[in-house]
Design a protein around this nucleic acid. Structure first.
Lengths: 142, 142
DNA sequence: TATTGTTATACTCTATAACTATA
DNA sequence: TATAGTTATAGAGTATAACAATA
């Protein structure tokens, strides 16, 4: 055995996540987006009233870190900010943002398909449920 | 649904890995070790001729980053370096390192047990095989 | 009082390039 | 020629604290 630690679930989870995220990051270079930026675009899609804070809460990105992230998307003219009241801003996709999202979706869908294809068929359907059990409805997040 | 992206395998993998690694890192504070340091101790265990470079290759840690990592373990008197020839050094556990490893193993075993317990029973046995299929024997690593 | 958006900053982890000495 | 150990540095990504303005 080349790696004596690979039987450990936590270790395997870490190694797999790293390899997979490097893969996706590389693919996303084709649309000039980082992982976090792509996830924001995917999340905004179909909504017209989501705020920066809400995006951060859903994706587990600190409010403070949302600022430069949205600024980068803004600089690429992919999003726009619209006042909801005098405190909150709705983040929406521009026309260019929608176009970029179409390309981003194609990349992420191919990525997810390839990812699942690498998992032996008998394990495949168990993958997402197992992962989501580890972090969703996590009481420590409340 | 609170998170519209949770059905995506890559996204779920990333979120799960993050939550799990924060958990383990917190537990390892009890033995004053970082994740990478603990994995090195676990890997050295039972060997007396492993080198820094070999550890790095197995754990996917750059040679350059092994230096400060081993220095920290050395500063805690957990490892010692023994010349194999005039170029290579064997990294071995000191007596204190062996004691620390015992405590570290107890922590990681409890962690792995708790991790698996959070996965619904019908998915549990599929978890590690699915993860390892994603990164082990990865041709891009060759 | 709690929340939003923001600025500034610090910290960890990881990646890269270069060098010397030895296999 | 390739590899081991090392130094120095740069870049992401993330976390924390604080603030003014508004809900």
């Amino acid at each position: 055995m080349r790696d004596p630690l690979s039987h450990l679930p936590g270790y395997a989870l870490r190694r797999a996540a790293h390899v997979i995220m490097v893969d996706l990051s590389t693919r996303l270079q084709a649309v000039d987006l980082k992982l976090s930026e792509a996830s924001v675009l995917l999340l905004i899609d179909g909504r017209d009233d989501i705020t920066s804070s809400e995006i951060g809460r859903i994706l587990d990105i600190q409010r403070a870190n949302m600022v430069p992230l949205l600024n980068r998307l803004d600089a690429q003219k992919l999003i726009q900010r619209r006042p909801l009241d005098r405190k909150s801003m709705a983040i929406t996709l521009t026309e260019e943002g929608k176009k970029r999202l179409v390309r981003t979706k194609a990349i992420t869908q191919a990525f997810e398909t390839d990812l699942l294809a690498r998992i032996p068929q008998e394990h495949r359907d168990h993958f997402v449920p197992a992962l989501n059990a580890l972090w969703m409805a996590d009481s420590s997040t409340a």
